[in-house]
Design a protein around this nucleic acid. Structure first.
Lengths: 207, 207
DNA sequence: CTTATTTTGTACCATACCGCATAAAATCCT
DNA sequence: AGGATTTTATGCGGTATGGTACAAAATAAG
């Protein structure tokens, strides 16, 4: 089914039955619902269609599989957020709403119930006793902080903010807003309501 | 060891070896570190000093035990927050800082590593697939929202907020700030830093 | 066609887990 | 003292879990 892309020389032995990238996405889906501890390798095996030895060969044990899933999620998520903040001609208000709308699309994606942010929703629990997950969580959070602060700084430089505004403080509020939305999505608050509080928060932030 | 308080008529059979309230607190401590799925009944048994049948007799199965722990935590937490917001003569700024300082004390309590908010840190993960936990999480979050909104409304009535401020929006930001602090505490961000972002956020909120 | 190489699929092992059955222990009541 | 009652303590049973051994399958190279 899968054609060899480009000039990739066909590897030596039996070909893989499943695409590792798709499998990782499906593993993310599995962890996303019930968390790291709450998801068994059998469930991941079912979600990916790979049996456990293949899973193990491709991604290592459960812990490293989860770390890879987390890293992959942060990448996708940050790409989406940076796209939202990228256009320098867009107003701060519009850029922030694009960011929140993009994340809401992620939080409410998938077949089952709304599952919020994968990282906030699953890594936070493990972070206390697991140094690697804690580090990955902290780094992801910090990335967003930095991007937002840069965007807020830009807004201030362009005179979009009221005098005396503190871009770093406003960036932290914008970041906090995303975190509370991530939590509330998992708590069952409807999407429309979350978008509404995002809208109000953006109003306050933009002054 | 335990004297019968007041006129409590000593119950009939063998006396309990452990105080159920203290045991529930210790069960909370156990769940707090590693979450619902990540904590075994053996660990809870060790933490409380009760063996499993006693645990089961006192609190029911693991799920109902966790629900009781969650409910107890919300109560303690909300009591602390309401105390912080209660004094009508205090400035909004001071009241909010009292609230954040009180919660930070909780988030950084205990012997081990900082563990943030019990509810945010452990219920969020389970909330997607567990209706009861989801409900308890949503109710707790909503309680804080309501209290903050009432306090912000009071501030506006007293003329503490700038004209045109939206108390509900500001309350949501204050709530979001607590949520992000809860997450960041688990992610390993030091307490001093969290207090600093709380201070800045309060500055913005109070105008 | 045979051999080398890699992946798959089945099955297994040791342990962990939750819940409970049952007996011993500690107290109250008569 | 003896029976009634409640809790504790030990331990078991059935299942789930993470990880792996091993043989069969699928492909490339010779």
């Amino acid at each position: 089914m899968v054609q060899n892309k480009d000039v990739e020389p066909r590897p030596r032995g039996r070909p893989r039955a499943y695409d590792p990238r798709a499998a990782l996405r499906q593993a993310i889906d599995a962890f996303w619902k019930t968390g790291y501890s709450g998801t068994s390798l059998d469930e991941i095996s079912a979600a990916t269609g790979m049996n456990r030895p293949s899973l193990y060969a491709a991604f290592g044990d459960k812990h490293t599989l989860y770390l890879k899933a987390l890293e992959q999620y942060w990448q996708l998520s940050l790409v989406s957020m940076r796209e939202a903040l990228a256009d320098p001609d867009e107003s701060l208000n519009a850029a922030l709403m694009r960011l929140y709308d993009g994340q809401l699309s992620i939080y409410f994606s998938g077949d089952g119930r709304p599952r919020g942010c994968f990282a906030i929703g699953t890594a936070t629990t493990e972070a206390v006793e697991d140094p690697e997950i804690r580090k990955a969580l902290a780094e992801g959070v910090h990335m967003l902080d930095s991007d937002l602060e840069a965007r807020l700084q830009m807004a201030q430089d362009k005179g979009e903010l009221k005098d005396g505004a503190d871009p770093a403080a406003l960036a932290m509020l914008a970041s906090a807003m995303l975190h509370t939305i991530a939590i509330r999505a998992r708590a069952g608050i409807p999407r429309s309501e979350l978008r509404e509080i995002a809208r109000k928060a953006v109003s306050v932030i933009c002054g």
